[in-house]
Design a protein around this nucleic acid. Sequence first.
DNA 1: CCTAACGTTGAAGGTAGCTTAAAGGTCAAG
DNA 2: CTTGACCTTTAAGCTACCTTCAACGTTAGG
Lengths: 169, 169
Amino acid sequence: MKIGELARLSGLTPSRIRFYERIGLLKTVDRRPNGYRTYPQQAVMILGLVTTAQRAGFTLDEIRTLLPSDLKHWDHATLMDALTRKIADIEALQVRLTQSRAHLLRLIEDIQARPDDMDCAANAHRVLTNMLAEHPEALDVTSDDIRLLDATDRRQSVSPGRGKKTASR
Amino acid sequence: MKIGELARLSGLTPSRIRFYERIGLLKTVDRRPNGYRTYPQQAVMILGLVTTAQRAGFTLDEIRTLLPSDLKHWDHATLMDALTRKIADIEALQVRLTQSRAHLLRLIEDIQARPDDMDCAANAHRVLTNMLAEHPEALDVTSDDIRLLDATDRRQSVSPGRGKKTASR
DNA sequence: CCTAACGTTGAAGGTAGCTTAAAGGTCAAG
DNA sequence: CTTGACCTTTAAGCTACCTTCAACGTTAGG
């Protein structure tokens, strides 16, 4: 079949199919005398495999190293290993997402939990401080630093502060 | 403070801080007579906020539109809306990941469930067919098409198939 | 024969979020 | 005075995954 038909059958664009060929992902392609590419039926299955693997989170590079030239001769051990590691990756990502979600929920609650006697600016400050205190890993900042920020921010200071590390003139 | 110190306090590289300034993410910056950038203490908090928001899944573009120039004057409604939608995004992603994970697990099981009397090639074919049959959305392919592939693959056909444009919808 | 649809190529563009390079100015210490 | 750490700029590069463009050849149908 020609590239257009393969595109229709696989749901990919011709440009994408040619791209996959260029990067060595689709090797089952011949040429007709007129220069047109011609594909075996198998190509549909290969492309389906590629997009499926992509949805599962594999990069094209990974897919290329896993994909045998002949769909019948897989490297069983390598494949199983890759699948297992990909599952672990997914699980790690799920953990991160769960944390992010919880973090956002806490943030929403925190914003809404504004004491009646607190104005918006002070509430903003309170929420921000809580948030940054919750994740000190990213900020190379000690609790001393947080307290310091706290103070300077409250004073709305833009003047040359003279803290410990913070005040390099 | 100068950019080096801000980099140390925030945990970001100077280039990244300059980059954020260039794309309008960090506007609290002045210049000394010698051309050096100089930042208020607040900048540490802003950068912390940016990286935190990034970890939560916000793009820099989203962060820019949400970040007020003054940390004390947030657009409360817009912010809450963005947070809520981001949580929904995360949940959608979690669903997808759960599906991917389940899919990979099924795939592993399927590969291992090779009947004793089946050779590797046939098993590979069986697994592939199951897999592609499971996700017809991506492939613009009917079960008829699958059966077709099935057949041609078995016959190892590479012949000039001017196959009827089977079910090209 | 003409036209529309299809095919070919190589190069460049685009997204997101930075980093790196090149070429230079500033500053404090020894 | 020199060294080295710091600062400046613009431009280009990088990863991943394609798309788009320009310029051109081929084929099927009327």
